[in-house]
Design a binder for these strands. Structure first.
Length: 238
DNA sequence: GGCGCGCGGCCGGTTACATCA
DNA sequence: ATTGATGTAACCGGCCGCGCG
């Protein structure tokens, strides 16, 4: 804090050197004069080394620059505030870039998911067709035989109530999960579920997960491998 | 050891002024 | 010459840590 003696010293100096004072007035006695370029350079240089000044250094710097210690202290306070404000802007830009990157990645994933759903539907139809034909003709369907053999250890009999291991009911469950709202999937893929881990997902805008280059190398096989270990609805593929 | 008190420093916000387009 | 925007030195009030009695 500025004591009375220091205050009086500041004002005495300010009012005595009229040529350096642009204006002197106001009820708050604000006597502003901008620091010289040389003073600013020295202050900036010191700030780069340490954003907080030890009292002895503050006194020394003030003496060297012909300023009051109080002025140096205030300059550092203001500088820290300005730096913090700038830093916030930088952080915001990075976050925004990462968000945009994640959004585009998610859109790609969504399209891929749609393509997979269509593919799955086609396969489902392919499975359904032979079953219907067998019901009409009374013949066994090869796929049913294979499945029953693998489960029961013996050749399956041609019974209409025998269900394939890949049941349509289950497939529909799978589809049900898949066609559920995107937010669940989004959360699982991007770690948005539960406690926010925003900081952990942040990557530099020029690299890491968020880079389009990496995304270009993204392989769905890896996705399936990862998913198989944690998502039951991918059992179908495993 | 816990407490109140004064002091000094910092911070967020604000004011008043300088500068520039 | 005037004016609005921007930058900044200085200030204010509140908070916190520290030393001391």
């Amino acid at each position: 804090m500025l004591d009375a003696e220091e205050y009086s010293q500041v004002f005495a100096e300010s009012f005595s050197s009229i040529n350096e004072i642009t204006t002197t007035k106001t009820k708050k006695n604000k006597n502003k004069r901008r620091f010289s370029d040389e003073q600013i350079r020295s202050l900036e240089l010191m700030f780069e080394n340490e954003s907080r000044l030890e009292p002895p250094k503050k006194l020394q710097l003030a003496k060297e620059l012909g300023l009051q210690p109080r002025q140096v202290a205030i300059w550092f306070q203001n500088k820290r505030a300005r730096w913090k404000s700038k830093q916030l802007e930088r952080d915001y830009s990075i976050l925004q870039a990462n968000y945009n990157s994640l959004t585009s990645q998610f859109e790609i994933l969504k399209k891929e998911k749609q393509a997979l759903l269509i593919q799955m539907q086609k396969m489902k139809d392919m499975l359904q067709r032979p079953k219907e034909e067998s019901q009409h003709s009374g013949e066994c369907v090869a796929i049913n035989s294979i499945d029953n053999e693998s489960e029961n250890g013996e050749t399956a009999k041609c019974e209409s109530n025998v269900q394939p291991s890949i049941s349509m009911e289950r497939s529909e469950d799978v589809l049900g999960v898949l066609s559920d709202d995107d937010s669940a999937m989004k959360g699982n893929y991007f770690g948005l579920e539960g406690e926010p881990i925003l900081i952990n997902t942040i990557e530099p805008a020029d690299g890491g997960l968020t880079s389009t280059e990496d995304w270009g190398n993204f392989e769905t096989d890896n996705l399936f491998q990862q998913s198989c270990s944690s998502y039951l609805w991918w059992d179908f593929w495993c």
